[in-house]
Design a protein around this nucleic acid. Structure first.
Lengths: 213, 213
DNA sequence: GTCTATATGGGGATAGAC
DNA sequence: GTCTATCCCCATATAGAC
């Protein structure tokens, strides 16, 4: 069997990790309804029946993975309110972009769930909102102190999410417009510069060369 | 049968329109793979078998609808290059936002297709890119003339799309963050103000009260 | 031309063999 | 504990009745 890739026998945790990765792929691309245990199994190099031994159900797997994404995002902090707004915002945008570049599938899964009506996410969404509330407080203080222009902090925050997550969720479009082929990497440095500059100007700040790097 | 809504016998074009609307709903929420002819049929008040008399196949229906969205977008113009940048941009943003508010399902369908890898859209996507190219030319000229700050016109354009389409694709999140219930309308005027202000500041302009209205 | 009855395959999940 | 054989339902689609 020369043509068959040798498969070292996987340990249980290895298999479980392979399943998670496979499921993230499928859920990210096709959503809960569109993903099939068939494709997840194939991707994880298991039979469909084998897969069902390792998971409770398709939906349970989905919920577990989604909860993981939310947990990860909830750990992320916005930044110190007594810090330099330009610096704090630039840092926040960079972290958001890094997530989009490094974990595009998790962002896509989240996006898919929202577009589909967020029936699963709805109960979990309180967590991120609390986090976001802290960022909003900081922004509000900055506005009161005249350190950034007067704006709606909630909408502003969502605009940051929109622009940064765009690079993960709609990477196909970005690549098409930028004429970057599927395999090739995007010009991250350039995108970081542009997004940071856009966001900082957007709230009335002028980015320093340091912020853009 | 008092409880049954009286159904005036629908004409063929009426039925076809009902099918289109039903399909847009399902495709927008669940994508090509996730949508079922079952749910489309129910939504259009037909039996599954009846539906299949009116459509060629699920995929054909999908492609037709998607092409329609792209056609509609391709008709939209960016604006005159010799106009006032702030005014042209404000107008463009407002039209994009109006589309998000009035046709959120079409935007969602498009988003879903992109997230899923755009296998169907890929061949159609050249059309919008040509349109976008014209906008980019205008932006480039404005930069050369020093009328807006130096920025990457392609990325800037996509940032506008990201922020405006966000209100359609992720309306669930927007509503959740703004504490607006599902039935209630969003505060469009406020959102228009904030997005226009964000975009104009973002390219180094200061919006007039006129642009924000 | 329109819709009912039906074919055929793929979907998620499990009983029971190893 | 692990996986094979199998179940049953729902999916898309069509042949043929009206």
């Amino acid at each position: 069997m020369v043509n068959e890739r040798k498969l070292a026998k996987r340990s249980r945790p290895e298999i479980q990790e392979d399943i998670r990765q496979a499921a993230i792929q499928e859920f990210a691309l096709h959503g809960l309804r569109g993903a099939t245990t068939q494709s997840i199994a194939e991707r994880a190099q298991l039979s469909k029946a084998q897969l069902h031994y390792y998971i409770e159900s398709k939906e349970a797997l989905y919920v577990e993975l989604l909860q993981g994404v939310v947990d990860e995002w909830s750990r992320e902090s916005f930044g110190q309110r007594d810090g330099d707004p330009a610096h704090v915002l630039a840092s926040y945008v960079k972290r958001k972009l890094a997530f989009s570049f490094d974990q595009p599938l998790l962002s896509k899964m989240f996006a898919n769930e929202l577009i589909s009506g967020a029936e699963v996410l709805r109960s979990i969404l309180t967590q991120p909102r609390t986090r976001a509330g802290q960022a909003v407080q900081t922004l509000t203080q900055w506005i009161d102190e005249g350190r950034i222009r007067a704006l709606d902090p909630w909408l502003f925050l969502m605009h940051i999410w929109a622009v940064t997550q765009h690079y993960a969720d709609f990477d196909v479009q970005v690549r098409f417009m930028m004429r970057v082929r599927a395999g090739q990497p995007l010009d991250r440095a350039r995108i970081v510069r542009e997004v940071v500059a856009f966001v900082l100007h957007g709230c009335g700040l002028t980015p320093s060369e340091d912020d853009l790097a």
